[in-house]
Amino acid sequence: MIRILKYSFFDLMRSRWTIVYCAFYGILTLALFGLNSDISKVIITLMNIVLTLVPLIAMIFGVIFYYNSREFVELLLAQPIKRKEIFIGQYLGVAFSLSLSLLIGLGIPFIFYGILSSTEIFNYLTLLLVGVMLSMIFAGIGFLIALKYQNKIKGFGIAIFTWLFMAIIYDGLFLLLLAIYRDYPLEQFSLFAAVLNPIDLSRILILMKLDISALMGYTGAVFQKFLGSQLGMTIAFATLLMWVIIPVSGINYISKRKDF
Protein backbone atom coordinates (compact mmCIF):
# COMPACT_ATOMS: atom_id res chain seq x y z
CA MET A 1 0.00 0.00 0.00
CA ILE A 2 2.82 2.37 0.87
CA ARG A 3 4.30 1.95 -2.60
CA ILE A 4 1.03 2.73 -4.36
CA LEU A 5 0.56 5.71 -2.08
CA LYS A 6 4.06 6.93 -2.87
CA TYR A 7 3.62 6.70 -6.61
CA SER A 8 0.17 8.32 -6.71
CA PHE A 9 1.48 11.02 -4.40
CA PHE A 10 4.53 11.85 -6.54
CA ASP A 11 2.48 11.58 -9.72
CA LEU A 12 0.10 14.22 -8.33
CA MET A 13 2.75 16.42 -6.77
CA ARG A 14 4.23 16.87 -10.22
CA SER A 15 0.91 17.54 -11.88
CA ARG A 16 0.25 21.07 -13.06
CA TRP A 17 -3.06 21.26 -11.19
CA THR A 18 -1.57 20.51 -7.80
CA ILE A 19 0.96 23.28 -8.35
CA VAL A 20 -1.79 25.68 -9.47
CA TYR A 21 -3.83 24.73 -6.39
CA CYS A 22 -0.88 25.37 -4.10
CA ALA A 23 0.01 28.66 -5.80
CA PHE A 24 -3.60 29.79 -5.57
CA TYR A 25 -3.58 29.54 -1.78
CA GLY A 26 -0.18 31.20 -1.60
CA ILE A 27 -1.26 34.16 -3.73
CA LEU A 28 -4.63 34.43 -2.00
CA THR A 29 -3.04 34.55 1.44
CA LEU A 30 -0.46 37.10 0.33
CA ALA A 31 -3.22 39.24 -1.18
CA LEU A 32 -5.21 39.10 2.06
CA PHE A 33 -2.15 40.15 4.01
CA GLY A 34 -1.67 42.99 1.56
CA LEU A 35 -5.20 44.23 2.29
CA ASN A 36 -5.11 43.69 6.01
CA SER A 37 -2.20 42.95 8.29
CA ASP A 38 -4.37 41.74 11.18
CA ILE A 39 -3.61 38.02 11.32
CA SER A 40 -6.89 37.17 13.06
CA LYS A 41 -8.94 38.81 10.28
CA VAL A 42 -6.92 37.06 7.61
CA ILE A 43 -7.65 33.74 9.33
CA ILE A 44 -11.41 34.44 9.36
CA THR A 45 -11.44 35.39 5.67
CA LEU A 46 -9.40 32.33 4.81
CA MET A 47 -11.72 30.18 6.85
CA ASN A 48 -14.68 31.16 4.69
CA ILE A 49 -12.73 30.39 1.54
CA VAL A 50 -11.24 27.14 2.85
CA LEU A 51 -14.62 25.84 4.04
CA THR A 52 -16.18 26.26 0.61
CA LEU A 53 -13.29 25.66 -1.73
CA VAL A 54 -11.39 22.81 -0.09
CA PRO A 55 -14.34 20.39 -0.20
CA LEU A 56 -15.09 21.29 -3.83
CA ILE A 57 -11.52 20.98 -5.07
CA ALA A 58 -10.83 17.83 -3.02
CA MET A 59 -13.95 16.17 -4.36
CA ILE A 60 -13.20 17.10 -7.98
CA PHE A 61 -9.57 15.94 -7.57
CA GLY A 62 -10.75 12.62 -6.13
CA VAL A 63 -13.15 12.08 -9.02
CA ILE A 64 -10.70 13.15 -11.74
CA PHE A 65 -7.85 11.14 -10.29
CA TYR A 66 -9.88 7.96 -10.22
CA TYR A 67 -11.25 8.38 -13.74
CA ASN A 68 -7.81 9.24 -15.12
CA SER A 69 -6.17 6.24 -13.53
CA ARG A 70 -8.76 3.68 -14.60
CA GLU A 71 -6.57 1.97 -17.19
CA PHE A 72 -3.58 2.12 -14.90
CA VAL A 73 -5.66 0.46 -12.21
CA GLU A 74 -6.19 -2.43 -14.61
CA LEU A 75 -2.45 -2.85 -14.76
CA LEU A 76 -2.18 -2.70 -10.98
CA LEU A 77 -4.97 -5.24 -10.58
CA ALA A 78 -2.95 -7.67 -12.70
CA GLN A 79 -0.09 -7.50 -10.19
CA PRO A 80 0.07 -9.66 -7.07
CA ILE A 81 -1.46 -6.98 -4.83
CA LYS A 82 -4.74 -7.00 -2.95
CA ARG A 83 -7.46 -4.67 -4.19
CA LYS A 84 -7.69 -2.93 -0.84
CA GLU A 85 -4.06 -1.89 -1.02
CA ILE A 86 -4.46 -0.44 -4.51
CA PHE A 87 -7.50 1.72 -3.82
CA ILE A 88 -6.74 2.85 -0.30
CA GLY A 89 -3.17 3.59 -1.42
CA GLN A 90 -4.41 5.71 -4.33
CA TYR A 91 -6.91 7.53 -2.15
CA LEU A 92 -4.25 8.37 0.43
CA GLY A 93 -1.98 9.59 -2.37
CA VAL A 94 -4.65 12.08 -3.52
CA ALA A 95 -5.57 13.12 0.02
CA PHE A 96 -1.97 13.68 1.11
CA SER A 97 -0.96 15.63 -1.97
CA LEU A 98 -3.99 17.92 -1.60
CA SER A 99 -3.25 18.39 2.08
CA LEU A 100 0.38 19.17 1.39
CA SER A 101 -0.53 21.74 -1.29
CA LEU A 102 -2.86 23.41 1.17
CA LEU A 103 -0.28 23.40 3.96
CA ILE A 104 2.42 24.86 1.72
CA GLY A 105 0.09 27.42 0.13
CA LEU A 106 -1.25 28.65 3.45
CA GLY A 107 1.94 28.03 5.39
CA ILE A 108 4.66 30.02 3.66
CA PRO A 109 2.92 33.46 3.66
CA PHE A 110 1.91 33.07 7.31
CA ILE A 111 5.45 32.20 8.35
CA PHE A 112 6.60 35.20 6.37
CA TYR A 113 4.15 37.44 8.24
CA GLY A 114 5.28 36.15 11.62
CA ILE A 115 2.61 33.63 12.65
CA LEU A 116 5.15 31.67 14.67
CA SER A 117 5.55 34.47 17.20
CA SER A 118 1.88 35.49 17.13
CA THR A 119 -0.78 34.68 19.74
CA GLU A 120 -3.02 33.53 16.90
CA ILE A 121 -0.93 30.44 16.28
CA PHE A 122 -3.49 28.02 17.76
CA ASN A 123 -6.33 29.47 15.73
CA TYR A 124 -4.15 29.23 12.68
CA LEU A 125 -3.30 25.61 13.44
CA THR A 126 -7.02 24.85 13.85
CA LEU A 127 -7.60 26.32 10.38
CA LEU A 128 -4.86 24.13 8.92
CA LEU A 129 -6.10 21.03 10.72
CA VAL A 130 -9.65 21.62 9.54
CA GLY A 131 -8.39 22.21 5.98
CA VAL A 132 -6.48 18.92 6.03
CA MET A 133 -9.46 17.02 7.49
CA LEU A 134 -11.80 18.46 4.86
CA SER A 135 -9.32 17.49 2.12
CA MET A 136 -9.20 13.92 3.44
CA ILE A 137 -12.98 13.69 3.79
CA PHE A 138 -13.97 15.09 0.43
CA ALA A 139 -11.21 13.43 -1.57
CA GLY A 140 -12.58 10.18 -0.10
CA ILE A 141 -16.16 10.99 -1.02
CA GLY A 142 -15.07 11.98 -4.55
CA PHE A 143 -13.05 8.80 -4.97
CA LEU A 144 -15.97 6.73 -3.71
CA ILE A 145 -18.43 8.37 -6.11
CA ALA A 146 -16.08 7.82 -9.07
CA LEU A 147 -15.57 4.19 -8.07
CA LYS A 148 -19.32 3.65 -7.85
CA TYR A 149 -20.28 5.31 -11.13
CA GLN A 150 -18.61 4.12 -14.31
CA ASN A 151 -20.15 7.00 -16.23
CA LYS A 152 -17.98 10.10 -15.84
CA ILE A 153 -20.73 12.63 -16.37
CA LYS A 154 -22.92 10.95 -13.78
CA GLY A 155 -19.97 10.75 -11.39
CA PHE A 156 -19.14 14.44 -11.77
CA GLY A 157 -22.80 15.40 -11.47
CA ILE A 158 -23.27 13.48 -8.25
CA ALA A 159 -20.00 14.82 -6.83
CA ILE A 160 -20.95 18.44 -7.55
CA PHE A 161 -24.42 17.91 -6.13
CA THR A 162 -22.99 16.33 -2.97
CA TRP A 163 -20.75 19.34 -2.52
CA LEU A 164 -23.62 21.74 -3.20
CA PHE A 165 -25.77 19.92 -0.68
CA MET A 166 -23.18 19.87 2.07
CA ALA A 167 -21.78 23.36 1.52
CA ILE A 168 -24.97 25.27 0.74
CA ILE A 169 -28.30 23.41 0.70
CA TYR A 170 -27.75 21.80 4.10
CA ASP A 171 -27.33 25.21 5.72
CA GLY A 172 -30.44 26.47 3.98
CA LEU A 173 -32.54 23.56 5.21
CA PHE A 174 -31.03 23.96 8.65
CA LEU A 175 -31.99 27.64 8.79
CA LEU A 176 -35.44 26.89 7.46
CA LEU A 177 -36.06 24.32 10.20
CA LEU A 178 -34.79 26.72 12.83
CA ALA A 179 -37.17 29.40 11.55
CA ILE A 180 -40.19 27.08 11.38
CA TYR A 181 -39.66 25.60 14.82
CA ARG A 182 -38.36 28.74 16.50
CA ASP A 183 -40.90 28.40 19.34
CA TYR A 184 -39.28 25.18 20.47
CA PRO A 185 -35.95 24.64 22.23
CA LEU A 186 -33.63 23.76 19.36
CA GLU A 187 -30.19 23.93 20.91
CA GLN A 188 -29.74 20.16 21.08
CA PHE A 189 -31.10 19.71 17.58
CA SER A 190 -28.90 22.39 16.06
CA LEU A 191 -25.86 20.97 17.79
CA PHE A 192 -26.69 17.53 16.44
CA ALA A 193 -27.43 18.81 12.93
CA ALA A 194 -24.23 20.84 12.81
CA VAL A 195 -22.09 17.91 13.91
CA LEU A 196 -23.55 15.71 11.16
CA ASN A 197 -22.19 17.90 8.37
CA PRO A 198 -18.39 18.05 8.29
CA ILE A 199 -18.36 21.52 6.72
CA ASP A 200 -20.63 23.00 9.40
CA LEU A 201 -18.73 21.23 12.12
CA SER A 202 -15.45 22.63 10.82
CA ARG A 203 -16.87 26.14 10.65
CA ILE A 204 -18.09 25.98 14.22
CA LEU A 205 -14.78 24.57 15.42
CA ILE A 206 -12.93 27.55 13.98
CA LEU A 207 -15.47 30.10 15.17
CA MET A 208 -15.27 28.70 18.70
CA LYS A 209 -11.52 28.96 18.63
CA LEU A 210 -11.71 32.55 17.45
CA ASP A 211 -13.87 33.50 20.45
CA ILE A 212 -16.58 35.12 18.42
CA SER A 213 -19.27 32.65 19.48
CA ALA A 214 -21.04 35.54 21.19
CA LEU A 215 -22.19 36.50 17.70
CA MET A 216 -24.29 33.36 17.60
CA GLY A 217 -26.43 34.23 20.61
CA TYR A 218 -27.84 31.62 22.94
CA THR A 219 -27.11 28.74 20.58
CA GLY A 220 -23.54 29.96 20.48
CA ALA A 221 -23.41 29.58 24.21
CA VAL A 222 -24.65 26.00 23.95
CA PHE A 223 -22.02 25.29 21.32
CA GLN A 224 -19.38 26.93 23.43
CA LYS A 225 -20.39 24.81 26.38
CA PHE A 226 -20.26 21.65 24.31
CA LEU A 227 -17.21 22.30 22.14
CA GLY A 228 -15.37 24.26 24.79
CA SER A 229 -15.12 21.16 26.91
CA GLN A 230 -12.50 18.50 26.44
CA LEU A 231 -15.19 15.94 25.71
CA GLY A 232 -16.92 18.14 23.15
CA MET A 233 -13.69 18.76 21.25
CA THR A 234 -12.91 15.07 21.29
CA ILE A 235 -16.38 14.24 19.96
CA ALA A 236 -16.05 16.91 17.26
CA PHE A 237 -12.72 15.57 16.01
CA ALA A 238 -13.91 11.99 16.34
CA THR A 239 -16.85 12.93 14.12
CA LEU A 240 -14.53 14.45 11.54
CA LEU A 241 -12.47 11.28 11.68
CA MET A 242 -15.65 9.23 11.21
CA TRP A 243 -16.26 11.27 8.10
CA VAL A 244 -12.90 10.07 6.78
CA ILE A 245 -13.54 6.46 7.78
CA ILE A 246 -16.99 6.21 6.19
CA PRO A 247 -15.91 6.91 2.57
CA VAL A 248 -12.73 4.86 3.02
CA SER A 249 -14.74 1.82 4.14
CA GLY A 250 -17.07 2.50 1.22
CA ILE A 251 -14.08 2.46 -1.15
CA ASN A 252 -12.96 -0.84 0.35
CA TYR A 253 -16.44 -2.37 0.14
CA ILE A 254 -17.15 -1.35 -3.45
CA SER A 255 -13.68 -2.16 -4.78
CA LYS A 256 -13.92 -5.72 -3.44
CA ARG A 257 -17.08 -6.40 -5.41
CA LYS A 258 -16.40 -4.46 -8.59
CA ASP A 259 -15.54 -5.80 -12.02
CA PHE A 260 -12.80 -3.96 -13.89
Binding site: Y7, S8, F10, D11, L12, R14, S15, N68, S69, E71, F72, E74, L75, A78, Q79, P80, I81, K82, R83
Partner: peptide, 24 residues
Protein backbone atom coordinates in the same frame (compact mmCIF):
# COMPACT_ATOMS: atom_id res chain seq x y z
CA UNK B 1 -3.90 -12.60 -5.17
CA UNK B 2 -0.42 -14.10 -5.06
CA UNK B 3 -0.93 -16.30 -8.12
CA UNK B 4 -0.65 -13.15 -10.23
CA UNK B 5 3.11 -13.33 -9.65
CA UNK B 6 2.98 -16.08 -12.27
CA UNK B 7 1.39 -13.88 -14.93
CA UNK B 8 2.67 -11.15 -17.20
CA UNK B 9 -0.30 -9.13 -18.48
CA UNK B 10 -0.50 -6.78 -21.42
CA UNK B 11 -3.73 -4.76 -21.13
CA UNK B 12 -5.66 -3.70 -24.20
CA UNK B 13 -5.35 0.05 -23.68
CA UNK B 14 -1.86 1.22 -22.85
CA UNK B 15 -2.49 4.14 -20.54
CA UNK B 16 -0.27 4.84 -17.58
CA UNK B 17 0.05 7.64 -15.01
CA UNK B 18 0.98 10.64 -17.10
CA UNK B 19 3.50 12.30 -14.84
CA UNK B 20 5.92 9.48 -14.18
CA UNK B 21 8.73 8.51 -16.53
CA UNK B 22 9.14 5.23 -18.39
CA UNK B 23 12.03 4.27 -16.12
CA UNK B 24 9.99 4.99 -13.00
Amino acid sequence: SDYRKLIGYLPQIARFPENITVRE
